Simulated scan of single mutants.
Amino acid sequence: MKRIICTALICILVLTGCSATPVAKEQQPETTIPVYYLAGRVQASEAADLSVPFTGRVEAVLTSVGQAVKAGDPLVQFDISEASAQVKVTRQTLAIAQATLEKARTGARPEQLRQAEATAKAAKTALDNARKNLKRYQDLYNSDAIPLSQLETAQGQAASAEAAFKNADEALAILKNGETQAYMVVLEKQVDQAEASVAATEAVLANRTVKAPFDGIVVACPAKAGETYSYQTTLVSLENRDRLTVDAYGPTSAVNHFKVGQKVKARVAEQLDKEISGTVTWVGNTVDPKRQDVLVKISLAPETSLMAGMFAEIAPVQ
């Protein structure tokens, strides 16, 4: 009887096992974890440390850290008193040079010509009289009627009268015929030099106002009103954050995952839960001898929370 019961139990177990339907395993959704192959520093597409090529005292600081500025906006104003005085002097010199050149080009006025003619005529009369007087004294000296000193005095008077007539005659000829070409060239060069001096002093005056070279954000402003700053000392630091870039580096095996135009993901240590999109703009084809890796340039999408200097990791978009 026991043998019959055992045999029955075995049959039941076998039949139950054969008829059981296997339970299907629940399928888990596949997730793709980005692999950050490259790393580098975030930097602004445009950045500048503004300074001046002179030593001067700051009169006013017109900006502050964090302020958005437009190209051409004044940022720092230096004292302009000395520069303004130099501009005034050079402009006066230019006006004189231009007037002299214009006078030479237009020629003499009628009254100047009449005056020059009268001066030349008087000088000719004085020369004729001096020559007659010299001849008379020469005759008297030859007859031993006067001493040598009187003859020498007459000779000096004649020489002076001749020089005066020559000068008056040349002045009259210039007024009649105009200045010589060589003299006109000299006058024109003087005007050119005066214009260059005005331009130089006006440039110095303009440099007394430090202006923004491009649209951007003021990230540092060490300049202070009343302080004197020397040549090439940084006064304001400016960045254009409308377009941020990353110079990312990695070994050749990592760089092989990137190509120009490819979309990428970037994350920074300060915001690990946030991904910033970007595009590969350049892939290097040489290994840096110092770093022993390859450079890949990335252009990032505008993101107000990013700042230059942040360390970023780059992953390709699958």
Rank of each mutant, 00 (worst) to 15 (best):
R136Y: 06
E82V: 13
V87E: 00
A203K: 03
F78P: 00
E170M: 13
A159P: 04
T125Y: 15
A130N: 03
L127S: 14
A154Y: 01
Y137E: 06
L187T: 00
S149W: 12
D192V: 07
E111C: 13
V191C: 02
V191F: 01
Q155C: 06
S143H: 14
G156W: 09
S149E: 15
I80Y: 07
T100P: 14
K121Y: 14
S149L: 15
R136N: 08
D139T: 12
Q190Y: 09
D128I: 05
K88F: 02
R131D: 11
G66M: 06
S160C: 07
T153I: 07
A122T: 15
A126I: 03
A97K: 04
L134R: 04
E82D: 14
V191D: 01
D79H: 08
Y183W: 09
A123R: 04
V204W: 08
Q77R: 12
I96V: 10
A123I: 01
A196V: 02
D169Q: 07
K132D: 10
E102L: 12
R131T: 11
L113F: 10
A122Y: 13
T153V: 10
T90D: 13
R105L: 10
T93M: 03
V186F: 11
V87K: 04
T180H: 12
Q67T: 13
V89I: 06
Q92E: 12
A99F: 11
S160L: 13
R91Q: 06
G178W: 04
A159Q: 09
A116F: 03
T180W: 05
R109A: 14
K166E: 13
L151Y: 08
V65Q: 08
G156S: 14
A104R: 05
A97W: 00
F78K: 00
L75S: 09
Q193I: 15
E195T: 00
I146A: 05
F78Q: 03
Q98F: 06
Q92S: 10
Q86K: 12
A130I: 01
A99W: 13
L113A: 06
A104M: 05
V198G: 00
L175A: 08
K121V: 13
L187M: 05
A118K: 15
A123D: 04
L175R: 12
A85G: 00
K70L: 08
K135Q: 15
A108M: 07
Y183Q: 13
P74K: 03
D73Q: 15
A154W: 02
V186R: 12
L187D: 06
D139P: 08
V65F: 02
D169Y: 04
V191L: 03
A161M: 02
Y137P: 04
A97S: 09
A123L: 01
E202D: 03
A108E: 14
Q112E: 13
A123W: 04
A182K: 07
E82I: 09
G156L: 11
R91Y: 01
D73S: 15
Q190F: 08
A85L: 01
A182F: 12
A104E: 07
N133K: 04
T125C: 11
L113N: 07
A108T: 08
L134D: 01
R131W: 08
N129H: 09
T125W: 14
T180I: 14
A145P: 05
Q138V: 00
Y137C: 05
Q190K: 14
K135N: 15
K70V: 05
A200N: 06
A83T: 09
K124F: 10
N133G: 03
N177C: 01
T106A: 11
P147K: 01
N142G: 06
